[in-house]
Amino acid sequence: MPRLLAAFLTCVVSAVLATGAAFGIVAALDATPEQQNVPLVTFPDPPADGASSTPGPGSD
């Protein structure tokens, strides 16, 4: 009987620890600030008529 009780308590304690760790990880992830969505590279807008003022590759 004592071994059965020890095994049961071990399972209960491990389940509580796993649940606490999961909630702790979720809380830590929610506590971090969100990163700004700023692009590192920006490209100029194309001309309105769609034609390029500089010849592209293959337009010899």
Rank of each mutant, 00 (worst) to 15 (best):
G20Q: 00
A48H: 09
V26R: 03
P47F: 07
T10N: 02
V16E: 02
G24M: 00
S52E: 15
L17Q: 12
E34C: 05
P39L: 08
L29M: 06
I25Q: 07
T19E: 07
E34P: 10
A6Q: 04
D60N: 13
M1V: 05
P44C: 05
D30H: 14
G20I: 00
G50M: 03
G58R: 07
Q35P: 00
A51W: 13
V38W: 15
L9V: 03
D60V: 15
V38G: 00
T32A: 13
A51R: 13
G58Y: 10
T42E: 14
E34W: 14
L17D: 12
D60P: 15
T19G: 06
A48E: 14
V38E: 14
E34R: 04
A27T: 03
G24F: 08
E34D: 09
V38Y: 14
P2T: 10
L4W: 04
A27W: 01
S53W: 08
A27M: 06
S52T: 15
P47R: 07
F23V: 13
P57C: 10
P44D: 09
A27E: 04
F23Y: 13
S14N: 06
M1I: 03
G24P: 01
T10G: 07
L9K: 01
L4Y: 03
P55Y: 14
P39G: 10
T42C: 05
P55N: 09
G20M: 06
T32M: 12
P47Y: 01
D49N: 05
R3I: 06
A18K: 01
G56D: 14
A31S: 10
V38S: 08
P46H: 06
V16L: 02
P44Y: 14
S14V: 01
R3C: 01
V41Q: 00
V41N: 04
L9C: 06
Q35T: 10
A51I: 15
D45K: 13
P57N: 07
V41Y: 07
S14H: 03
A31C: 08
G50I: 09
S52Y: 13
P55M: 13
A48G: 10
P44V: 12
A31H: 00
S53I: 11
A28G: 08
D45L: 15
G20W: 01
V13F: 04
I25H: 09
V16T: 01
A48R: 01
G58K: 05
L40D: 15
M1R: 04
F8T: 02
V26L: 12
P2I: 10
V41K: 04
A15I: 02
D30E: 15
V26N: 01
A22Q: 05
C11S: 10
V38P: 05
T54S: 13
L4F: 00
A7M: 10
A7F: 08
V41E: 03
L9E: 01
A22V: 12
A21H: 07
F8L: 02
T42N: 13
A22W: 05
F43P: 05
G24R: 00
A22P: 02
P2L: 11
A7N: 09
A7P: 08
P57V: 11
G50F: 09
S52V: 12
A48Y: 11
G24H: 00
N37F: 15
L17P: 06
P55S: 13
N37H: 10
E34S: 11
D30P: 06
G20N: 03
S53N: 07
G24Q: 07
A15P: 09
